[in-house]
């Protein structure tokens, strides 16, 4: 699966807007057939990176090769083999659903016959057959998103860039999209995806990076990341009031270390990372901390994310 030269090769990839550094010298490679994820808090630089890969945003420094080509000189040739789902929809809202697919196919220079066949398949893919003749403008947000995804596939891309593809989709539509993305993966389509849904990243990504403040802070498969950056168990403590939680957080920072746990206060609860959940609970409650609820569970990618990008929103 990882044979041959990488489909995307980035070294010291940098994006600056004036003095502001949105992407700060990141390195990564995406191999053919792989699904690769970018996770990170708001403003981490995920979309800026995706736009550079999509050859619509010139790089400020570093090296970027896509499909073996240089975006500076081969932008149109690269883009002709990409499918792009941008974070914000760019549909032609004055046109019908059908016309949106047709016109997009024309941008890629497809013939009308090719487009007709492909658009019919994609309407079924997006479950928008009944809306084919309707204008896009009054469609629901989720329907527009599905159309954007369908439109990105009109040219049978080798590399699909999905910037928060399922934001705004209902659970059925999300699961359906996951299934479709699996199918594309089996067909050999390489995918780069950003998401704020950790379950989605665990489901879809072979490998991912976590970005924070313009840099990559961790890289690996979801399983590797959990093994490397999280403990086996997580204890979640909730409290009735903020004051109680703050007091408990202080007490725990002083003592839970003794119980072998690391403390991560979140706005609504305190997380304790530990190798032994039940033991930590016993130690903590023995110390006089009285949470209103206690949950012991296995670590997930979300815990890795929160630990590595560990700061509450107020700090931003």
């Amino acid at each position: 699966m990882q044979g041959g030269s990488p489909l995307i090769h980035a070294r010291s990839l940098t994006k600056r807007f004036g003095d502001f550094v949105a992407v700060d010298g990141i390195d990564f490679e995406v191999h053919r057939g792989e699904t690769f994820g970018f996770l990170g808090p708001n403003g981490a630089g995920k979309s800026s990176t995706m736009r550079m890969i999509g050859c619509v945003s010139p790089i400020s420094a570093g090296t970027l090769r896509i499909l073996g080509m240089d975006p500076v000189t081969d932008g149109p040739a690269i883009r002709s083999r990409l499918g792009v789902v941008p974070q914000e929809d760019t549909l032609d809202t004055e046109l019908t659903v059908w016309d949106n697919l047709v016109i997009y196919g024309r941008y890629f220079g497809l013939t009308r016959a090719e487009i007709r066949e492909r658009a019919t398949e994609l309407l079924a893919f997006a479950r928008l057959e009944e809306r084919a003749r309707d204008r896009v403008d009054p469609l629901s947000g989720g329907m527009k998103r599905r159309l954007t995804i369908a439109r990105a596939l009109i040219n049978r891309p080798e590399l699909l860039l999905l910037d928060e593809p399922t934001t705004g989709l209902d659970p059925q539509a999300r699961h359906l999209l996951w299934e479709r993305l699996y199918r594309l993966k089996r067909e050999g389509v390489t995918q780069v995806i950003t998401t704020h849904y950790m379950d989605e990243a665990e489901q879809l990504c072979d490998r991912l990076v976590i970005m924070d403040r313009a840099r990559i802070v961790a890289e690996g498969s979801p399983r590797q990341l959990i093994e490397r950056h999280a403990t086996r168990d997580v204890v979640e403590l909730r409290f009735t009031t903020h004051d109680e939680q703050d007091a408990a957080a202080e007490a725990l920072s002083a003592t839970a270390g003794g119980a072998g746990a690391e403390v991560e206060p979140l706005p609504d609860r305190i997380l304790l990372y530990t190798g032994d959940g039940d033991g930590t609970v016993a130690a903590v409650t023995g110390n006089g901390v009285q949470p209103s609820s206690v949950l012991v569970r296995r670590s997930t990618l979300e815990d890795v994310f929160l630990r590595l990008t560990g700061r509450t929103l107020e700090d931003e």
Partner: peptide, 14 residues
Amino acid sequence: WIRTYHGMVATPLS
């Protein structure tokens, strides 16, 4: 407003 041009430059169009 609708950002259709941004969709266009994501294709081979410049």
